[in-house]
Design a protein around this nucleic acid. Structure first.
Lengths: 340, 340
DNA sequence: CTGTTAGCGCGTTCAA
DNA sequence: TTGAACGCGCTAACAG
């Protein structure tokens, strides 16, 4: 385990350090013969330049950071998958951080990332993030930021989202077309723009179809699973129980499903349900639920691509456009594969 | 965006660079007053030491790498969650790499990680990994390696697994006790030790109960989803169709479920099924399947803890024990929440 | 208690 | 075409 570095290679070959360095970078100032000798020995000794020395000198870390509320989540893990796939192509390395939806943790992480550990950050904010200073500061420090899904509109930077208003509208209309009249909306946080947009779409659909808005039918479930379960149970135990539910994220949908099992409510006979969910999860649900699926993998890839584009043209002004991808609504009739 | 570094702080305060450095590390050789001044200015200017300069000098990267086949997988994402939680406690940073079960990609990644980018690696090997040189080399280069779940027994290092033989045995016996006699085993790869151990447990259970082993009932499904689906469909279309199935990983279980839907096979009337699966996924399946759940999060935490323990005592010989955690078998009677 | 000095390993001038 | 020298920002040995 002897250190193999530039100096060592140089000694071995009887040339100078800078010659080796240049040869390894295929510089035009080095003769083909020396290049060959250097590359030969480097291969043989399995030389890898020290990334941190390189970073220090070149002022480029080759690292990007991904900050998400939770890794063990169908949406976010798929998005990370997409990000990682682009990073590999670019020979970049991906650092992962999770906030567990704790805004203080988000602040700590961002604070740390001002150290220059990464060239860029791809993130989805916490459901509790109200203060944007830590995000603004990252930008100021020259760390490129790209938001995806849970974006922060107050910061001027690139963003990748889906068409949440339209999805919310379509989802709600889908329920209406299937006969629901008392439709509830399950929210995680009114601080999240995605949540608000989906809710706005929901309200718009109710409005269009002249349906009343029941304040009791807009339920803030939060992130805590047990709490969400309880809230949903209360909702479905109301005297004027809704006959339709729009769950704005997958975890809530699963809780709806579980509560229905407990209360003995049949889907879709007693309750029409539509939810945001990953395709694979959706395939498992039985009785089947209509679902809206976000292109999580593609969102990750898109976010990473913008980041790298901006990294490459660091001198020119960054492209701060918002990319909006389409979610897809998959209707499922419970009759298709019923086993009753 | 002026650089704030040690030199800048030193100039500003009229002291030397090393004084600032030591003060920031709360060294005993610095007077309380100067410490206060230094810390004061550092806070004010929001100084963060450059991590790469630090790493270079201290020969410690503060990075660990996690290599898994797939991030978007219930088991692995939970394990990463566990790893990340320990890393945050230790002020370490987690680099993520996925192989997509491509052994060449695994080799490339390990090759790269010999550069000294990380102090340690936590990994689950590919289903195609046969050659262990790249893993051995990592070890030789002083990069600590800890395997979890898909371990490589040929390399002498710490490992975290679950009791796969016993789980396989119990799973199979569970099916037998529920009346199955022709039990099939769905494998992903005979190169994986976990797969082989589960299969060994399965065979042992058949043996104990004097049941014949049908070669056609041991099916290598591989990693490709479509291929697995096809294989399972063929299995369930055999003239002597099995009346029980043991799926060795979650993704295969889901395919069993889907094939049953397509072929109109009822679980458990026509087919008893048991599978390895995440608890949340298991809760969704309807009709319910009996499942075996690995403590993925705890496995991740355990692996990370061993790694950090070994990192702290880098001089003393590393602890290369194998930690074996327990999986839990959750039987599910289809009568509990039937809706037929 | 503080400062001077010497690297960590690499990339990049500028001379030769 | 090559090499000597410097510095990225930081830590650590040693002097004062």
């Amino acid at each position: 385990m002897t250190k193999v570095n530039l100096k060592m290679l140089a000694n071995e070959l009887g040339v100078s350090i800078s010659t080796v360095s240049k040869a390894l970078q295929d510089s035009y100032e080095i003769s083909p013969e020396t290049k060959a000798r250097v590359l030969g020995l480097a291969k043989k000794l399995n030389f890898q330049p020290n990334p941190y020395a390189s970073s220090l000198r070149r002022r480029q870390t080759q690292h990007i950071a991904v900050i998400v509320p939770e890794i063990a989540n169908n949406f976010f893990s798929l998005a990370i998958n997409g990000i990682e796939s682009v990073a590999q192509e670019q020979h970049y390395h991906v650092l992962i951080y999770q906030t567990h939806d704790d805004d203080q943790k988000e602040i700590d992480i961002c604070q740390h990332l001002q150290s220059g550990r990464t060239d860029g950050v791809i993130m989805s904010v916490t459901a509790k993030t109200q203060d944007y200073e830590h995000l603004a500061k990252l930008n100021e420090q020259g760390v490129l930021v790209v938001f995806f899904d849970r974006v922060c509109h107050e910061i001027e930077t690139a963003k990748v989202t889906t068409d949440d208003f339209l999805s919310g509208f379509n989802a709600t209309e889908h329920l209406i077309q299937n006969g629901a009249r008392q439709i509830a909306y399950l929210s995680i946080s009114s601080l999240l723009s995605i949540d608000n947009k989906r809710k706005a779409g929901y309200l718009e659909a109710l409005h269009k179809h002249d349906l009343d808005i029941q304040p009791l039918h807009i339920v803030h479930c939060g992130n805590d699973e047990a709490h969400a379960y309880q809230k949903i149970k209360e909702l479905l135990s109301l005297p004027h129980r809704p006959d339709g539910i729009f769950a704005s994220v997958e975890t809530l949908a699963i809780n709806v499903y579980l509560v229905c099992q407990e209360l003995g409510l049949r889907i879709p006979q007693d309750l029409k349900v539509i939810c945001f969910a990953n395709l694979k999860t959706a395939a498992l649900l039985n009785p089947p639920l209509s679902t809206i699926t976000q292109p999580a993998f593609e969102m990750g890839r898109a976010a990473a691509k913008i980041l790298f584009r901006n990294l490459c043209h660091k001198n020119t002004p960054a492209q701060n456009e918002t990319i909006v991808l389409k979610s897809t609504l998959v209707p499922r009739s419970s009759t298709a594969k019923g086993d009753g």
